[in-house]
Amino acid sequence: MSHSCSLLAPVDEDQEFHLDDYEGARARWCPGCGDHSVLTAAQRLLVDEQLKPEETVFVSGIGCSSRFPHYMKTYGFHGLHGRALPVATGIKLHRPDLNVFVVMGDGDCVSIGAGHWVHATRYNVDMVAMMLDNNIYGLTKMQTSPTTPQGYKSNTQPQGSWLPALNPIEATLGITNASFVAQTAEWIPAHLFATLQAAYRHNGFAFVRVLQRCPVFTADIYMDAVRNPEMIDMLDHPDGVPVPESLRQIYPNHLRHDPLNLSAARDLAADTSRIRLGVFFRDEGLPRYEETRHLPAHTADDKIRILNEELDQYAV
């Protein structure tokens, strides 16, 4: 498809957008839910980047976090469980002029939608894909998800999760053509914002796992990390997310990590003894599917001319 948009658009081009220009319906997540913080960060990002609300689409699946688009005043696509990425891919293939953000939960992204997660990463279509990871199915009331810590009790596995938790960062880093893989936490707003901004500015598919507290079902999982910044390593690099000034003192553990170094990134991700926040990997030199498939536009008459030529081959 051709990548162009029409020039026909209203004249008021240089309008400045404020936070309230991006605020949709009042968010109805539980008090204390980490999703509120992600919403605020996203809205701040849109202000900062001055993205036009009508040229921005938030695509989601089904789950607590997938209510996200309703709370934005942009275009939103609240589709099917696990299927946000194909929809977003379709949008971006047809309309690369749009800014596309995808909001998924852990069940959404790495369970029912796992196939799409793998392939969307490989397509490397320019969009921000956030996985809001609270380690549990929240909307359906506490079922084990692939990222639930082993042994953690839920309604479906009351004896505790049987399997070791899936490591989404490590897995994503293993996918061919992954171009941006980052992790942040909703309880550190400055880092969250900086990470989302780096993801937005990245040319390609930016996968961001946001560690997210669920005050109702998994309140304890991130409790220690919230209380004790010592448990967290901040990956620090100007090509990734430099540790924000405001956090340098509070989070004393900084790891210098060049995001172009894939094998180092994989080692850092595989070691789950520490929580590591920042950009694990980033390479803008990788092929982007919507670019690869870019085609010029044709007028209707042009198409008729070409079609006639093609049909000549089937003419008797």
Binding site: S4, C5, S6, L7, P296, A297, A300
Partner: peptide, 10 residues
């Protein structure tokens, strides 16, 4: 050119 075409068609 594509922008011109899309606009012209619209």
């Amino acid at each position: 050119r594509s922008t011109l075409i899309v606009t012209s068609e619209e």
